[in-house]
Design a protein around this nucleic acid. Sequence first.
RNA 1: GGGUCUAUGGCGCAGCCAGGUAGCGCACCGGACUUUUAAUCCGGUUGUCAAGGGUCCGAAUCCCUUUAGACCCGCCA
Length: 529
Amino acid sequence: MTEQDIIGKGTWIDKLASELLEREKSLGRNTDLLRVESGLGASGIPHIGSLGDAVRAYGVKLALENLGYKSELIAYSDDLDGLRKIPEGMQEFGLEEHIAKPVSLIPDPYGCHDSYGMHMSSILLEGLDRVGIKYEFRRAVDTYKQGLLKDQIHTILQNSSKIGEKISELVGQEKYQKYLPYFPVCANCNRLYTAEASEYITDEKKVKYTCHDTEIGSKMVKGCGHIGEADIGKDLGKLAWKVEFAARWAAFDIRFEAYGKDIMDSVKVNDWVADEILGFPHPHHVKYEMFLDKGGKKISKSLGNVITAQKWLEFGTPKSILLLLYKRITGARELGFDDIPSLMAEYNELEDIYFGRIKIDNQAKLIKSKGLYEYVNLLNPPKQSSTHVNYRLVIELAKIFKENRTERVTKKLLDYGVIKNPEPEIEKLIELAGNYSDAFDTQEKTQVDLDDTVKKALKLLVDALSGDEELEDIQNTIYQIAKSNDVQPKDFFKILYQIILGTSRGPKIGPFISDIGRKQVAKTLSEYT
RNA sequence: GGGUCUAUGGCGCAGCCAGGUAGCGCACCGGACUUUUAAUCCGGUUGUCAAGGGUCCGAAUCCCUUUAGACCCGCCA
């Protein structure tokens, strides 16, 4: 790769943006405003994968702007979707009766938003705000209510048999050969999916339906038998996902949307509908893998193993999230909170590369790393490097100091010469690392094999440490005790580290013990004698 | 049935998506430092980068085929 080959900042985001531009040019489309979209689910607790969709779309927007174009991110909440499953941990809210209703018509069980759907969307939007992503928010409810998709729905329903056949051909799903790809909301019981769309009345632009029993997941949901008509210009129903994206892309003039592999089939169909039925060349896409948890299971929106942005931000910085999402897009990834420490370190490394403190010979890689750093800073990188403190070190320190943590850890960092002055950023880091160590400190009482001579030596040490008078030289005391009791000092130190830290090595132990507190250590050690 | 991803030294992984001498962590081994160690320093496993083929001056990286594993879709969203 030579210098002139590099596009933008040299990352996959730039490459994607340039592919998009090339496509737009060959289509001969107007490029005054290139809109990108991200869909937000509103029926479950939004996890980091949902956030990723929007964050990456925003990255593409930044890349387009960097290449000299105007762009905008639409964050679209699918809040006309029906509630299918009650999320884990939300059993006590009596949501059962709301199954199959649009999430925007279900009251917020927490009482803080206008609906269940808005509550869920807000969690995601707050996550976006906290990592610094800017977006234009739209809701399905408003979109339908205002009839913004009316023309597209009309065209789709007129061509429903053609679409039904194509769906069967493309993805093997045959249901739309029989039914319209439109789900009315039953006017009587407010449920979607139970109301089966049988006929489109073209002149009136209404869909005729009958509300009957249906199966959602493995559960039967009762219909009410109501027969009604839904006006497609209102929020009385919604398109099926297989055709809805296409309608939205055309109506909002969307030029880019990323998608997870779980909706690959829907995207395939929607692309065809956009191109062939609506005459709107579909947006450029990029597909990404789902995040899996450490067991290799899909992170489900309705299960308990949810990694939300909020939870992540208790342990890591916003930049650690952005780095995770911008460093690459391909590849299945198992993700857990234990990835946070290495991402924190990787950010510092990128910063060192950016500011020239780490040399990289390969020009292309250098540019790419710098580019990644800029994206993680949303193309607004700081003028100077921040103070780097090893996150893992702070976790270790936080494990030891549980009371007055900020002060005491700060003092240690000053002693080690890691920092020169206390800074608010460092305090924040201590808070994050502290949360991390509190949440994931699985350190149990280590099994240490002690013979009698060692026990005797330990006892002597405990006595010495428990005494009221200050010990001048704890280090030497330990050494003397070991020696005079026929214990190899080397082994004795090792045992102490194992008991106190759970490791076989550690800091110089004398000063360290006085840091933790003599009596505290004496108490810990006495459990082994 | 359809699709996607993954496969790299003993273990865990990075590098691949914009090709340019194969890396990191852990573990283990050898050496240096006569307890006084902030995760000490030096060296080490010569890795057929899953297998086979192709493109290229050059392939872990791009293309095709094969094998194994994982995941997604085939309700709905």
